[in-house]
Amino acid sequence: MIKQNKLSFSRLAIYATLLAACAVYLVPLIVMLLTSFKTPEDIRSGNLLSWPDVITAIGWVKAWDSLGGFFWNSVKITVPAVLISTLLGALNGYVLAMWRFKGSQLFFGLLLFGCFLPFQVVLLPASFTLGKLGLANTTSGLVLVHLVYGIAFTTLFFRNYYVSVPDALVRAARLDGAGFFTIFGRILLPMSVPIIMVCLIWQFTQIWNDFLFGVVFASGDTQPITVALNNLVNTSTGTKEYNVDMAAAMIAGLPTLVVYVLAGKYFLRGLTAGAVKG
């Protein structure tokens, strides 16, 4: 944004550095893709960046065979958890921004701490609770856990968004006799599309990428894809099939990558929302 003095050499150096950096950031992705389409023999004879002798999808087929079911587990966990936590976050944010009551600010502060909670400190009680509820090792149990520990962020997003909505708008509607849900549904929701996108995308990446909750609260058939991927890659039985490993990693990574490419703007806003002062 700074006005350029016409030093074409420094311009060139800037572009060269940026391009080199792009290459470095892309290498792992390129290597994963190349490796996933090679045969195991090819992997041993070639190197990371050598072009496959024959392009084969066998790695992808095998990876899907072992991970497909877990992929659907992740879908079953992610979709309800994202939707419910976003809805709850919107309602909470609405109350905390527009219907303050005595103690609501304190509560917001208590909630905010949840954004920074190291989950290790709640894992044990949470697993006892899931056991008592009969939800241990189920996908519903994971939905519940993600709901509980995602709510701090979703509430933060909406609360900070609604705080900047002029009070007069809501006060006028209240004078006209509009009630709690009418104001929410008619006035606030229609203007919330951007923050809903931010929240959905944030929650989707968080929950899809989660490993800690998955590895602690699920086992066997109910594991999410991240746990299954880790098991696949870190089992020491048999010969390592790196093409399968890389295809599996791609399968686990693709949903969030696709969302990122399609809606990067919202992803970035979610990342910075918590960081740059709200």
Binding site: A21, Y25, W208, N209, D210, F211, D245, M246, T256, G264
Partner: peptide, 29 residues
Amino acid sequence: IRTIFLYPMAISMIVTGTAWKWLLNPGLG
């Protein structure tokens, strides 16, 4: 360019770890 710099943030640490484990593989990486 920004999209390229930021994409790793969208993927799971497990995927990142798997990829780098392979890149840093002694002998084949």
